[in-house]
Write a protein that binds this DNA or RNA. Structure first.
Lengths: 152, 152
DNA sequence: CGCTATCGTGGAGGACGTCAACGATGGAGG
DNA sequence: CCTCCATCGTTGACGTCCTCCACGATAGCG
């Protein structure tokens, strides 16, 4: 067991700060994405669908997003209802449905990404470029250590 | 790949990593605190109640936790039902109720803190002490920048 | 052909976030 | 003193999110 001085003061606890910082950024990004009819959840799913050219199984989507597969159903339903993605049957496995971004989906992604990046930058303006990179590196290692199978 | 734009790849997005890392830590800490009948929420509130000797108004609790005051009501109800805190009337303002930790509350805090710190350390073992400190500093600045009024 | 695993889907239940309203109290101004 | 408004705790409503369990359909293996 190591030095456990973390958390003696709540506002200095890494977990507390992580939760608060995440909440602040999510809220700000949700507000920015509202104009585009998206939320962080659906926007993230749209991003993944766009970036995987051939489409992405809902199972892989769930794993990449850290969600339960049952949540992905509603998420894809919502995106499909908006015409941003479509479910295409896989030719190799008739159980899986590949989530593919439509042309409208790619267009929405482009404009939504600008809005998200703006909110993002506003929320992170406290940090310099180097510090942002530092933060990203540290968080990336934490996430990959806690969630071993992570594509990318 | 040397892409420097945030969000071009979802798994490199600071917001995504923040949300995932926070979720991982919260889940692990909740599991560790379950044996003590606490969750991260109630544990955090208990910490604040313990550390403010004279007690803490529910309004200040809400602000410190970043919650809506209405949520604090149920939170304190739960802790009070478990005998860990008690609501004492303020002598200077009869509207406010000061949340004070009982002796059982202080005891529970001590044992729960060990469990929480263990889960904490396990989840953060990927990082060195220096890096943890770095992370804490960066997150602290983010939170304080986004939530100007924050007291220790 | 069975047996087991996986994929998408649905539903139940709880935790959580947000907002609006209320009674009780405090504080400032006429 | 009395009136107006702000604040504190509380309640309720509504929507989002998470977790788990179960089902039909399909895959893969022996």
């Amino acid at each position: 067991m190591e030095v456990l001085m973390d958390g003696t003061v709540l506002t200095d606890d890494v977990g507390y700060l992580l939760s608060r910082a995440s909440g602040l950024l999510v809220r700000a990004t949700n507000a920015a994405l509202a104009d585009h009819g998206l939320r962080v959840r659906s926007y993230s799913a749209l991003l993944l669908a766009c970036d995987s050219g051939d489409g992405m199984s809902q199972r892989d989507l769930a794993e990449a997003l850290g969600l339960d597969p049952s949540q992905v159903v509603l998420l894809v339903d919502e995106l499909a209802a908006a015409g941003l993605v479509e479910r295409r049957p896989s030719v190799t496995d008739r159980r899986t449905k590949l989530v593919c971004a439509t042309e409208a989906g790619h267009a929405a992604r482009a404009s939504a990404q600008r809005a998200a990046a703006a909110a993002h930058a506003a929320q992170l303006e406290e940090l310099s470029d180097d510090e942002r990179e530092q933060l990203r590196g540290l968080l990336g290692r934490l996430v990959r250590a806690g969630q071993p199978v992570l594509r990318g």
